[in-house]
């Protein structure tokens, strides 16, 4: 068992356990913080898959941006007086049924299909940032620009929706 195998099982265990805590924990603060560990574990798996730039981006955007937004959401939507941090569940049985069907289908497809795999490249992994930058500026230039417009619209829209409206007089 090489170091990479050990790291894979390590990150996979962290990801699955902390994702379960996110979903099944009764305390919403525990959920938010274990989401942090899930994001870290997925970033670690990206590094194992030779996607170094993507791993850094994952940490910056998910941990630095989305998770902080989530924590703000948690803080803003709970009554401070009543310290009601517990959250309940809805119909468990249909949810379990649908989920097991989805999981069975996915794992079945993934194991049955004969995926095409390129021959393994040996030697040190090459940094991916240069290749990604070139692809952004050539093949994927239009989607790149559209993505920036989407982010601008989301910024303006979120500010307008979340703003407190003026009292009608």
């Amino acid at each position: 068992m090489s170091l990479i195998d050990i790291l894979f099982y390590f990150f996979a265990t962290i990801a699955v356990v902390s994702a379960s805590i996110v979903v099944f924990s009764r305390n919403i603060i525990y959920s938010a913080f274990s989401l942090l560990f899930t994001f870290f574990a997925v970033a670690g798996l990206y590094v194992l898959l030779n996607a170094d730039f993507l791993a850094i981006t994952q940490l910056l955007i998910y941990v630095g941006g989305i998770l902080v937004l989530m924590l703000f959401g948690v803080m803003l939507t709970h009554k401070v007086v009543s310290v009601d941090m517990k959250t309940g569940t809805l119909k468990i049985l249909p949810a379990a049924l649908i989920t097991s069907m989805i999981a069975g289908t996915l794992i079945g497809i993934f194991t049955v299909t004969d995926w095409r795999v390129a021959p393994l490249q040996t030697g040190d992994p090459i940094p991916t940032a240069k290749g990604i930058g070139e692809m952004f500026m050539t093949t994927w230039l239009l989607p790149f620009e559209v993505a920036s417009v989407i982010l601008l619209i989301a910024l303006i829209g979120a500010a307008i929706i979340a703003r407190r409206e003026k009292e009608a007089k």
Binding site: V16, A19, V23, A32, L35, M70, T89, I107
Partner: peptide
């Protein structure tokens, strides 16, 4: 692939079974 299928299924459970909208939201991120 199996790991991401498991993570996806955990997220589906969260969307279908939890009451709090923010947890549903976190499950979508998962």
């Amino acid at each position: 692939l199996a790991l991401s299928a498991i993570l996806f299924s955990i997220g589906v459970v969260g969307v279908l079974a939890r009451r709090n909208a923010i947890i549903v939201f976190m499950s979508i991120e998962l």
